[in-house]
């Protein structure tokens, strides 16, 4: 029963910090997910329609990012990114800047997410039956119109399961930023645990909060999936 009493005490003292940590985690996850989709869309188009050089460099990007541990990538991108930015700024005659935690986290995880999104979106784009785009061309639609009106809407339901998976990975990956020292849920939890010495209670609270994020996301993605596949023939439920 000590456990319950201690947890209440912990939430009373550190509740606002946990709240801030959760919001920071959600902000970083949301931002990097959107950045990942942006990179993924251009990456997929580049991989499918780009020239030889572009295709080669994109496949180096996706292969390397997917084969190296995220923690190492986060450190590499963070250090390389900040020093690159600051040398550029200095050579242009500006002073150096400290990148805010949230922005850096978004960029770092966004670049990692982009590699996975590229593969998911590319896979979905090539799974759209060719006849559907051919029909558009036969009706005299331009290339961009075929892309916007046919390829994208037909591709979304195919990409959605993979993209939902990536969102889950994205929310959990933000915890790695604690190792670099970003103020998000995992780091706040570690600080709370260290200060109060209530290790078990603090990490249980964090588990619960992460689980809530996952379960809520599940519900939202189910709803999106239902909407984007409306009118599709019902497949057998596995």
């Amino acid at each position: 029963m000590d456990f319950i009493y201690n947890t209440i005490q912990l939430l009373y003292e550190w509740g606002p910090n946990f709240m801030r940590g959760t919001i920071a985690t959600l902000q970083i996850a949301f931002g990097s997910y959107l950045l990942g989709i942006l990179i993924g869309t251009f990456g997929a188009i580049g991989k499918l329609y780009g020239g030889r050089g572009l295709r080669l460099s994109l496949s180096v990007y996706t292969t390397l990012i997917r084969a190296v541990p995220e923690l190492i990538l986060i450190l590499l991108i963070y250090y390389a990114g900040t020093s690159l930015l600051n040398t550029t700024l200095e050579s242009l005659g500006f002073g150096t800047v400290d990148i805010s935690g949230v922005a850096a986290g978004i960029i770092v995880i966004g670049i990692v997410q982009g590699a996975y999104q590229t593969e998911v979106i590319r896979g979905a784009l090539i799974s759209v039956p060719k006849q559907e785009t051919d029909a558009g061309i036969a009706f005299g639609m331009s290339r961009t119109k075929v892309f916007r009106r046919i390829l994208i809407p037909a591709m979304i339901p195919l990409a959605l399961p993979g993209m939902a998976n990536l969102w889950m990975i994205c929310t959990k990956e933000t915890a790695l930023l604690a190792v670099v020292g970003f103020e998000e849920l995992a780091l706040v939890t570690k600080q709370a645990a260290g200060k109060t010495r209530l290790f078990l209670e603090a990490f249980t609270v964090a588990m619960f909060l992460y689980l809530c994020i996952t379960l809520a996301s599940n519900v939202i993605f189910k709803a999106i999936e239902k909407r984007t596949t409306r009118g599709h023939p019902k497949l057998d439920k596995q």
Partner: peptide, 9 residues
């Protein structure tokens, strides 16, 4: 939940 939190827990 993140593996990092499970590990720390």
């Amino acid at each position: 939940t993140p593996l990092l939190i499970q590990l720390w827990l």
